[in-house]
C-alpha cells in the first residue's frame, strides 16, 4: 500500500471520530481547522503512526486545541462541553429529573475529572488508549478515572459516600 493509500484509509477510518472528539471540546466553527491540522501532522509523521492510530491522532488534536484555544495553557485539563440541550425531554418526568441531576453533578466536577470521564464515556476509549491521549501511564489513568467516578457518584448522591462502582469493561 502506498503512503497515499495508507493516508486515505487513515482519513476514512478516523475522520468522523476525530471530528467528534474535537467538537466535544471546542465550538463547532473551530473544529474543522483543528481536524485539518491533525491530519497535516499525521501525513508528515505517517511512518511514526502506531497501528492503533486513533489515540495518537486524539493526542495531537488535544495538543493542537491547547495551542489554539486562548487562555487554555494555564489549565491542565481540556474541558468538555455539555451536549444534548436540544434533545426533547418531557418536563417533569423522572427521566428529566435524573438528567438534570446528572448535568448538575457533571458541572460540579473539576475540568480534569470531566476530561478523564469524557475520554471513556464520550470518546469510547479504553484506559490504555486514553492514557496515550493524556501522555500518562495506563495505571495512572485508571487511578484518575476511578477517582473521577467516585466524585461523580458522590455528586449524584451525596448521602451515599461509599457507593460501589460497577467494574468498567474498558
Amino acid at each position: 500500500m502506498s503512503a497515499e493509500e495508507r493516508f486515505r484509509a487513515l482519513h476514512r477510518d478516523t475522520y468522523a471520530d476525530l471530528l467528534r472528539f474535537v467538537e466535544r471540546r471546542v465550538p463547532p466553527d473551530e473544529a474543522e481547522d483543528i481536524v485539518s491540522t491533525v491530519f497535516m501532522t499525521a501525513w508528515r509523521r505517517l511512518a511514526e503512526l502506531p497501528e492503533d492510530a486513533r489515540p495518537w491522532l486524539f493526542a495531537v488534536a488535544r495538543r493542537t486545541m491547547a495551542n489554539q484555544t486562548r487562555g487554555w495553557l494555564r489549565r491542565k485539563a481540556l474541558d468538555v462541553r455539555l451536549g444534548g440541550r436540544d434533545s426533547h425531554v418531557p418536563d417533569g418526568s423522572a427521566f428529566s429529573a435524573a438528567r438534570i441531576d446528572l448535568e448538575r453533578a457533571w458541572r460540579s466536577l473539576s475540568a480534569a475529572d470531566r476530561e478523564v470521564l469524557a475520554l471513556v464515556a464520550f470518546d469510547g476509549l479504553t484506559s490504555e488508549q486514553a492514557a496515550t491521549v493524556l501522555n500518562c501511564r495506563r495505571s495512572a489513568f485508571a487511578m484518575r478515572l476511578a477517582r473521577a467516578r467516585k466524585r461523580l457518584q458522590a455528586a449524584l448522591d451525596p448521602a451515599a459516600p461509599s457507593l460501589q462502582l460497577k467494574e468498567m469493561n474498558a
Partner: peptide, 28 residues
Amino acid sequence: DLDQLKDLDPARGREPSAMEWTRSEAFI
C-alpha cells in the same frame, strides 16, 4: 455511571455531513 454519562455527550449521534466529508477529503 459511564453509560449514563453518554446522555450528556455533546457529539452524540453526530456524523459528518457529505459536504464535510468532501471538504476534508479535498484537504488531505
